[in-house]
Amino acid sequence: MLKDHVRIISALSASGEVVGRKKLQKMIYIAKKLSFPFQEKFQFHFYGPYSEELTLRVEELYNLGFIEEIKEKKGGYYQYRYSVTENGKEFLHLYETEMPHLKECLASMNEQNARYLELVSTVLYFDNLPKTEVVEKINKVKAKQRYTEEEIDQAYEYIEELKKIAKPN
């Protein structure tokens, strides 16, 4: 159990700061699909892959004082910023797990916007299907996002880039 919490703190530490709950969910899901040892179970939800376990772990880490969650009002909604606290850094120093290349992958993902990561994670969620069927699924389950074929192609290319970062030769 504690190892799973340490991995989440490690991910946040490697990212510096993550802006948005949805973005954090997508980053962890994509990292898991890249074979980083995240254990959270994900289901397909309104905004693509979602893990209630991850939400609960983040809440626990916040309650323990290991991560900071800053709630900001942005227009008609709230946005959350996540970072590791000093207590979290000390805890991580005691229990840190080695995840080579995680920092580079998360840094790259953190530069992307949440909408794009939603597309990338959705492509990965249906990665057992041929690309034509994935495109059909995206157009059906993500119709409101209006992803273009160019964006979908870019998502596939980005996944290949991330795979190279995660497992360099």
Rank of each mutant, 00 (worst) to 15 (best):
M1C: 04
D4N: 15
V6M: 09
R7T: 05
R7I: 02
R7F: 04
I8K: 06
I8T: 10
I8E: 06
S13I: 02
A14P: 05
G16K: 12
E17N: 07
V18E: 06
V19R: 15
G20P: 01
G20E: 10
G20Y: 10
R21C: 04
R21P: 03
K23Q: 04
K26E: 02
K26Y: 01
M27H: 04
M27I: 15
M27T: 05
M27F: 00
M27V: 13
I28S: 01
Y29M: 08
L34P: 03
S35P: 03
S35M: 12
S35F: 06
P37K: 03
F38M: 06
E40Q: 15
K41M: 08
Q43V: 14
F44I: 11
F46H: 14
Y47G: 03
G48E: 02
Y50T: 04
E52G: 12
L54N: 10
T55F: 13
T55Q: 10
L56C: 08
L56V: 10
L56N: 15
R57W: 06
V58E: 11
V58L: 11
E59A: 10
E60V: 08
L61V: 00
Y62V: 00
Y62P: 00
Y62C: 02
N63C: 02
G65L: 08
F66I: 00
I67H: 03
I67E: 10
E68N: 15
E68W: 01
E68I: 00
E68D: 09
E69C: 08
I70H: 07
K71E: 13
K74C: 06
K74M: 11
G76C: 07
G76D: 12
Y78E: 11
Q79S: 13
Q79F: 01
Y80F: 12
Y80M: 09
Y80V: 01
Y80E: 12
T85D: 06
N87M: 13
N87Q: 14
K89N: 11
L92P: 01
H93M: 08
Y95V: 00
Y95A: 03
Y95P: 00
T97E: 15
M99P: 07
H101E: 13
L102F: 08
K103F: 01
K103A: 13
C105M: 09
C105Y: 05
A107N: 12
A107K: 15
S108T: 13
E111G: 11
E111M: 14
E118R: 03
L119K: 09
L119D: 01
V120N: 01
T122A: 04
V123K: 06
V123Q: 06
L124S: 01
L124A: 06
Y125T: 02
Y125I: 02
F126D: 05
D127Y: 09
N128K: 14
L129A: 02
P130L: 07
T132K: 15
V134P: 01
V135L: 09
E136I: 05
K137G: 02
K137E: 04
K137A: 02
I138P: 00
N139R: 15
K140L: 12
V141T: 08
A143W: 06
T148F: 05
E149F: 11
E149W: 09
E150H: 14
I152V: 10
I152H: 09
Q154G: 09
Y156L: 09
E160S: 13
E161S: 12
L162I: 05
L162H: 07
L162F: 03
K163N: 05
K163L: 07
K163Y: 02
K164F: 05
K164T: 02
A166F: 00
A166K: 12
K167R: 14
P168T: 00
P168L: 05
